[in-house]
Write a protein that binds this DNA or RNA. Sequence first.
DNA 1: TCAATATGTATCTTTTATCATTGCATATCA
DNA 2: TGATATGCAATGATAAAAGATACATATTGA
Lengths: 147, 147
Amino acid sequence: MIDVRFPTALQMMLSLALAQTAGVERLSSAQLAEGIDSNPTFVRRLLVPLIQAGLVHSTMGRDGGVSLSTDAAMITLGDIYKVTMGNKKLWTGRSDIPHRCLVSCNVERFFGNLADEVDESVLDLLSKRTLADALSELRTLDAARAQ
Amino acid sequence: MIDVRFPTALQMMLSLALAQTAGVERLSSAQLAEGIDSNPTFVRRLLVPLIQAGLVHSTMGRDGGVSLSTDAAMITLGDIYKVTMGNKKLWTGRSDIPHRCLVSCNVERFFGNLADEVDESVLDLLSKRTLADALSELRTLDAARAQ
DNA sequence: TCAATATGTATCTTTTATCATTGCATATCA
DNA sequence: TGATATGCAATGATAAAAGATACATATTGA
């Protein structure tokens, strides 16, 4: 199955950012789940690292829910990516290749380095955008759509 | 399962590049499969687009096999990536999200644009390296490993 | 105080993308 | 013409991810 954690976490964070601008205190995992057409358990699983990293604040009990910990302009898409994907790299090579020649003895390391560079460049790109930026991009897209 | 087509195709191409410098006419899919600890069918499946794109030349029949079509310095890792991954994007979002608000109506397009930017930046990075560059990096790694 | 309802979390099942395997037609060469 | 390569289709196995279910725990308000 395709890993959709990042796009999903991003959508959740955008919903929280929108709620913030609309003056809504918090959203429940059920509300967030409805927005992504999924289930509350998946939402809560995704929230765990976001809460631990301090990007999101959670309140338990009746009338509980989650909200952004800070202003949307202080959170970058890179933050969200790093936190939700943890140590998972964008690329992983074949592992345990038998070492028989110049290529097979060194591709593993070579590819690892390459993958690191790719991760770095992607994070670079994501870190230049804040959640607030993304939200205003959504408004632009929405205006274009309306026409 | 993790998609290892690119790292695998890369290793195959590196083996072909090494064979080229060693004066070896061609390698069979069985030989390539041995190098990646896999099976000839998988190798041949990966070769199809590389052959169609003209990066690799294949000869059928007994004593057949494949070889690089051109010099390793003329082939970039970007070429290999584009050809083996086809239209598959690095990221795909959730699809068929119900349209209910500013976020849910526009994230799909927003994320698509973001994914396009990421693809572009990765291809940029890969296109700066040739197979010949990669082969000499392998030699450098090998020298470091020998110590 | 207690009923309602939220999060936190563990466990099991379902789904599905990917790779492995098998089989066979076709091509090529000694 | 037999040995051996590619080309290709079809089926099976594997594993990662998401869905589903269950329940303990926390909080609030009547």
